[in-house]
Amino acid sequence: PEAADLRALARHLYEAYLKYFPLTKAKARAILSGKTGDSAPFVIHDMKSLMEGEQFINCRQMPIQEHQQQTSALTAAHGVELRFFHSCQSRSAEAVREVTEFAKSIPGFVDLDLNDQVTLLKYGVIEVLIIMMAPLMNKDGTLISYGQIFMTREFLKSLRKPFCQMMEPKFEFSVKFNTLELDDSDMALFLAVIILSGDRPGLLNVKPIEQLQETVLHSLELQLKLNHPDSLQLFAKLLQKMTDLRQIVTDHVHLIQLLKKTEVDMCLHPLLQEIMKDLY
């Protein structure tokens, strides 16, 4: 494709990214570095501050559905970890909707076989969500609840097992990923590349997916050359991250499956259940 077409594709995906993802990397980094003036995030660093912060966590959830009624029915006796885990699930389900809308904006995606669109999302969406966590994280903690809260890494590590094991691998990945210093326009293309993976199990028609991915890859390569002229091999380094990402998702899904077995009161959000069933 012509360079001009590749640039137009990059612009289009960046616009879709800004449209569907409410907390950009630019905004997250401004919050993390204290450059947002008066709106510093509420910090959760222990159980007391978690209780105080729960009103923030719950204030932007989707309309009350059966799942959330179950969530709010959980009493303190069931454990703060489970209650927090349910809040995370609600936000994740909403994030899946955002990623779906972003996927639909990738030129050619909605023309793919509908079964293949489902497969691409099923396998791609957790990878995308983990990549999107990276800008929200630094070595000390992570923004949650649309940037209204900063939760410390030490607090997450202090939760009971296996909850304490859930976020640490994402921190390790994110701290390394953030050294690549991608911006939101680079991220938009990288997310599209992840979604358009032609090697997902059960795809019916791989060729058109690979063709779409190839175009986005060309656009990403050009974007990185223009946007990061001094960063050698950035394109190759970024593609290598996709391998690490698959392992993180596999481990994450296994942890959720373990939780389902060991936590009596655990109910998995129906959308997340759909995605994780028979995934890995």
């Binding site: 079964n115 489902v118 995605i275």
Partner: peptide
């Protein structure tokens, strides 16, 4: 596959308006 992934399918088929999750 569509049958086993009704919500995903619904998200894909619907417009950009929020879907009941």
């Amino acid at each position: 596959l569509k049958e086993k992934h009704k919500i995903l399918h619904q998200l894909l088929q619907n417009s950009t308006s929020p879907v009941d999750l």
